[in-house]
Design a protein around this nucleic acid. Sequence first.
DNA 1: CCGTATCCATTCCGATACTG
DNA 2: CAGTATCGGAATGGATACGG
Lengths: 159, 159
Amino acid sequence: MVGRTTFESAECPVARSLDAIGDSWSLLIVRDAFDGLRRFGEFQKSLGMAKNILAARLRNLVAHGILETVPASDGSVYLEYALTPKGRALFPVIVGLRQWGEDHFFEPREAHSMLVDTDGGRPLARLQPRAADGRIVGPDDTVVRKVADLPARAGRRKR
Amino acid sequence: MVGRTTFESAECPVARSLDAIGDSWSLLIVRDAFDGLRRFGEFQKSLGMAKNILAARLRNLVAHGILETVPASDGSVYLEYALTPKGRALFPVIVGLRQWGEDHFFEPREAHSMLVDTDGGRPLARLQPRAADGRIVGPDDTVVRKVADLPARAGRRKR
DNA sequence: CCGTATCCATTCCGATACTG
DNA sequence: CAGTATCGGAATGGATACGG
């Protein structure tokens, strides 16, 4: 057999997920989509990637139902790319990657702007670095907390 | 400029994370490491990948401090690969990918064995599909819950 | 059993030019 | 502005042979 192995029919859900978004760019595009970016040029400018591969990645994300194309809101003839519910469900993955990177690639209390923090604007998620109570508010009323911050529970198993 | 873009010095922690583990295989190796696999041959057999690229990915994971080599526990001359604290900190990311894949690539209530569920054995994590209370127990006493299951809190912001 | 080395095909990615 | 077309270099990945 030649060519890359596909995990399309793998039994493991992690493998299936990585098959859809396991390349260098897809999750960064999704991250930007959470940040409110919708237009081809916005993604291209934000990520600095070649237009042909951006087009290819967008096609793949649309094919996987993570993004969908919608008519441009400003009446232009072009398309916009919006997160679907399936795409928005990637929020915890993005947060996990962000927190892991923050904890292991940066200085302890350094602040990083992964996503813009505007209250009434376009961003779909608020991902400011560490709110006072450690809470991060995402789309669809999801809330993510760092696992270590979760309250202890009776019956928890010691390793 | 030629060659692939690197995110080694990106400001965004998500980009930095993806630079370390954003390929098809690394997270699957980490997943298997959580499952208790330690030997070269175990990974190779489990993932079915070519030995040369397994060696390359293991080298990369060790270089990033996600795995570390330790002398084989059985006295053989070979090395074993064990998760470091930094590697174990990837647990929430794996869980996020697993839950997303389970929710969007499989039938609603289907059960999937991502990781072996043994109680006293070698696995470092217990990742059985959906415990009764939705709780998943990981290494280092971490606990992960599906974000939607988190209790509502006063002052939560409606989108 | 544990890797390394080699060969090869495929894919990825970047730069640029081009079209509507 | 939003893509498509094309090209070339680089990395990825698979099969297999080889050596410790």
